[in-house]
Simulated assay, not measured.
Amino acid sequence: MVTPRERGQGDGSDRGQAHTLEGVTAALIVVTSVVLALQMTAVTPLTASTANQHIETQERAAAHGVLATASQETLRGSALYWNATRARFPGSGERGFYVGSGPTEQVALLDRLNQTFYGTGIAYNVRLVYLDAAGEERRTRRLVYNGEPTENAVIVRRSVTLYDNDHPVVASGRTPRTLGESAYFAPDAAPNSTVYNVVDVEVVVWRM
């Protein structure tokens, strides 16, 4: 026969076990909530940043690939595709630069850029950066302009050396005069040598 005292001791033990289980369950719930909250506040920005970095890396690699595989003659052809009589790129109109893909049939570099980026949601500008007459400061001439780049735009460039006896190409394909004899957009930055100027072909790409 169980005495009242013994019965009371059993009830206390059961209540203690129940309280212990409740405490453990509550602790697990709190820990789980904290972990979920930390994941929501820490992982989301990191994921977005990583995705943006991945996109920029892809854009840079694609643009770099186009310039890296282009021959010096291809780059020179881009810099020399100039109508000295009209003092602008052939067929560029009053703007003096191209909008869109430009004359891809005449300029091999623009053709390669168009093949690489057309239909991908990526826009690009092409600029020709050259030395001033003193050979000290850099000047920029737009070749292709498709809008203002975003803050995440990437820039790749390659240099090409132009010489005094190079010829700018007019729309008809005739080359009547050398750079030194024509109204070329870049000046002779090294008048005491056979080098005329050094032009950086810059490609700026960004996701629209």
Rank of each mutant, 00 (worst) to 15 (best):
M1A: 13
V2G: 10
T3I: 08
P4C: 08
D11H: 14
R15L: 13
R15D: 12
H19K: 15
T20K: 12
L28F: 11
I29W: 10
V30K: 07
V31A: 14
T32S: 15
S33G: 11
V35C: 13
L36E: 06
L38R: 11
Q39D: 12
Q39L: 14
A42Y: 14
L46I: 08
T47N: 10
S49C: 08
S49A: 15
Q53R: 09
E56Q: 08
Q58W: 07
R60P: 05
A61W: 08
G65D: 04
V66C: 06
S71E: 01
S71V: 04
Q72W: 13
E73M: 13
E73Q: 09
S78A: 12
L80W: 04
W82R: 02
N83H: 06
T85G: 15
A87M: 13
F89V: 06
P90F: 01
G96F: 04
V99Y: 06
Q106F: 07
L110Q: 03
L110T: 01
F117P: 01
T120S: 03
N125T: 00
R127M: 15
L128V: 01
V129F: 00
D132G: 04
A133P: 05
A134S: 14
R138H: 07
T140P: 02
T140A: 06
R142M: 10
R142D: 12
V144D: 00
Y145N: 04
Y145K: 04
P149R: 03
N152Y: 01
V154C: 00
R157Q: 10
R158G: 10
S159C: 12
V160I: 05
V160K: 04
N165D: 14
V170S: 08
V170T: 15
G173A: 03
L179W: 06
S182F: 06
S182T: 03
A183D: 13
F185E: 02
A186Y: 00
D188F: 03
D188S: 09
D188L: 07
A189Y: 05
P191C: 10
N192R: 12
T194E: 11
T194H: 12
D200N: 11
V201R: 02
E202P: 02
V205W: 00
